[in-house]
Computed example of a mutant assay.
Amino acid sequence: MQLSAGPDLPHARSRAGHWLATAAALAAAIGAGTFVPHSDASATATVTESSGDVTQGAPDPADARFPLHCGGVPVDVVSQASADLDGDGRLDTVAVVRCDSPTGTPPSGMYVLSPPATPASRPRITGTLLDPGKGLSVKGLEIDGRTVAATLLGYSSDSVPRCCPDLSRGFTWSWRDGRFLTLPDPGAGSV
């Protein structure tokens, strides 16, 4: 699905080859990042909950330290969902975070948090589903069973204002064999 920026804007016109190249590059970049487990990876998923209150006992993103460089502005938890993703009997939380900015749309990161090692410690980041360095935003975070789903929003060119992503594509992440596997949703005219 492409968000319309209006018929007269030059960045809104693209050809099928551009869409295919963009989709392939994005799928490769995100897929490569999720096939490599995080340094302390072992994640989990099964109950669903979207933004709002986190299921009792699940890691609270407000207590976590995310690897974002926000230049002194706070980290904003955009949405969160909790479930037992790896079947270990403990709830994990998937958090979509970004730097809190009054202008534009800062890129999002999407992280899997596991419960802290001790009651006095912070939740652990055990998986990175989307690195903010990719320059994308996230909407519609959901968990169904052991599968995380979201729509990633991006830009067709550097001339597209950072407030208004003009590309989107759904992705799912499933915990299998000790890591998250990424699958893009099929679809033409998407990220």
Rank of each mutant, 00 (worst) to 15 (best):
G145F: 04
A149G: 11
A16Y: 08
S121N: 01
R15T: 10
F35M: 13
R124P: 02
R162H: 11
R169K: 14
D100Q: 12
L167E: 11
L183R: 14
P123I: 03
A43V: 13
G17F: 05
L113Y: 05
T44C: 10
A120N: 04
D53W: 05
Q56M: 09
C70M: 10
D84W: 04
G52F: 10
P119G: 01
G89N: 06
W173P: 00
D88T: 12
R122K: 11
T118Q: 10
A12P: 00
S190H: 08
R146I: 00
D60Y: 02
R146E: 13
A25M: 14
P184L: 03
W19P: 00
W173V: 01
V73C: 06
P61A: 11
W19C: 05
R146C: 01
W173I: 07
W173M: 05
T172N: 08
V160E: 08
S101V: 09
G140H: 04
G154C: 13
T55P: 05
S50P: 07
T105V: 06
C99A: 10
L183T: 15
V97D: 08
G109E: 02
S4R: 00
T118Y: 06
T147I: 12
G187R: 07
L20R: 14
D86N: 15
S168Y: 02
H18M: 06
F66T: 05
D100Y: 04
T44R: 13
L141D: 01
P186Y: 05
L85M: 10
S108T: 13
S121Q: 10
S14P: 00
S50Q: 13
L183I: 12
S159D: 15
T44M: 12
P119T: 00
F171H: 12
A28Q: 14
A43M: 11
R179V: 15
S51C: 11
T126Y: 01
A41R: 08
A21P: 02
G145P: 06
A23D: 15
